Amino acid sequence: MPGPKDLDPSTSPRALLGAELRHARENAGLSRRELGEPLFVSASFIGQLESGTRRMQPDVARRIDEILGTNGFFERNCIAANKSKHPEHFAEAAEAEAVATTIREYAPVLIPGLLQTEAYARAVFRAYRPTATEAVIDELVEARLERARLLDDPATPMVWTVLDEAVLRRRVGNAAVMAEALGHIRALARRNRVLVQVMPFSAGAHASLNGALRLMSFVDAPPLAYLEVMSMGHLEDDPPTVARYTLAYDLVVAGALSPGDSLSLVESVAEEYTHEDQQP
């Protein structure tokens, strides 16, 4: 009996690979838990592979081929499925973000990528890569703007962001860049596309002082938490750990300004930058 054909990289290879995994697993009469056990991964992780929210790494793909008898199909095709325009440490999170139904995030330092303007993103990448060519910076900016097109859909994903006040006050680029960036957030909030709150300096210590936190939920896969530090990122799917991060986010929300007061603060700081830019 012929095996599955290799996947076409131009047709959502991650989703196709996940669909093939589910088909092969069911044909073998295995549950997600039964497939996960010899791989030393959870049933929820197998579910995330099948839904396309997690990457299939070559070593995992090789073992899946051995267990399911798929003649190297998954090992061959996971390479094409893992191609990404994003930095390696963030690629898996960006791909999960693209199929999420809700994205909740606490941002302690920078405006989150989905909410960035082109000028703001360019200033961020130039700070990260001071010696990079303009062509490299252009590619990074384009990938970030492509991510932001998720917000072209009027309702999905639901995006709820808590910005630390430091995000508003930290000058990225010049005053004009900051005025435009905060104006963009204001516009998204005004048309009810994103929910924005601000954690003011006056709130003092809070539950996510250790850093940025992103929570993503999906229609057909368990929720994920993503944590990122200096060119390193980690997706977490362990249910008790995700629940702990969810509580931390809920506590941050409880300590932040209301959406109305938050928007007023964003508008006020944006006006400060606008006036500064207009001064001779």
Rank of each mutant, 00 (worst) to 15 (best):
residue 169 R to Y: 10
residue 222 P to R: 03
residue 224 L to Y: 04
residue 217 S to C: 09
residue 21 L to D: 01
residue 172 V to H: 02
residue 244 R to D: 14
residue 63 R to T: 14
residue 108 P to T: 11
residue 11 T to P: 00
residue 256 A to D: 01
residue 249 Y to C: 07
residue 190 R to V: 04
residue 271 E to P: 03
residue 211 G to F: 09
residue 20 E to I: 00
residue 94 A to V: 06
residue 142 E to D: 12
residue 268 S to P: 00
residue 220 D to H: 13
residue 261 D to K: 11
residue 259 P to N: 13
residue 47 G to W: 00
residue 223 P to A: 08
residue 25 R to W: 00
residue 130 P to E: 14
residue 78 C to K: 08
residue 119 A to P: 02
residue 266 V to T: 06
residue 194 V to P: 03
residue 11 T to C: 07
residue 168 L to I: 05
residue 33 R to H: 06
residue 189 A to G: 07
residue 275 H to D: 14
residue 182 L to W: 13
residue 243 A to D: 15
residue 58 P to W: 13
residue 140 L to V: 10
residue 151 L to S: 08
residue 222 P to L: 04
residue 150 L to T: 01
residue 62 R to V: 02
residue 55 R to W: 00
residue 210 N to D: 09
residue 155 A to W: 11
residue 250 D to S: 13
residue 245 Y to K: 06
residue 116 Q to V: 03
residue 84 S to A: 07
residue 237 D to Q: 13
residue 126 R to S: 13
residue 8 D to R: 09
residue 9 P to Q: 08
residue 224 L to W: 05
residue 154 P to A: 08
residue 181 A to Q: 15
residue 266 V to K: 08
residue 80 A to N: 11
residue 254 A to Q: 12
residue 249 Y to R: 04
residue 172 V to Y: 00
residue 49 L to M: 04
residue 151 L to N: 05
residue 263 L to M: 04
residue 244 R to Q: 13
residue 269 V to E: 02
residue 85 K to Q: 07
residue 189 A to I: 09
residue 129 R to E: 15
residue 120 Y to I: 11
residue 208 S to N: 12
residue 138 D to I: 03
residue 27 N to F: 03
residue 268 S to Q: 13
residue 7 L to C: 07
residue 191 R to F: 07
residue 89 H to D: 14
residue 231 S to W: 12
residue 274 T to P: 12
residue 239 P to A: 04
residue 220 D to T: 15
residue 89 H to I: 11
residue 51 S to C: 06
residue 99 V to A: 03
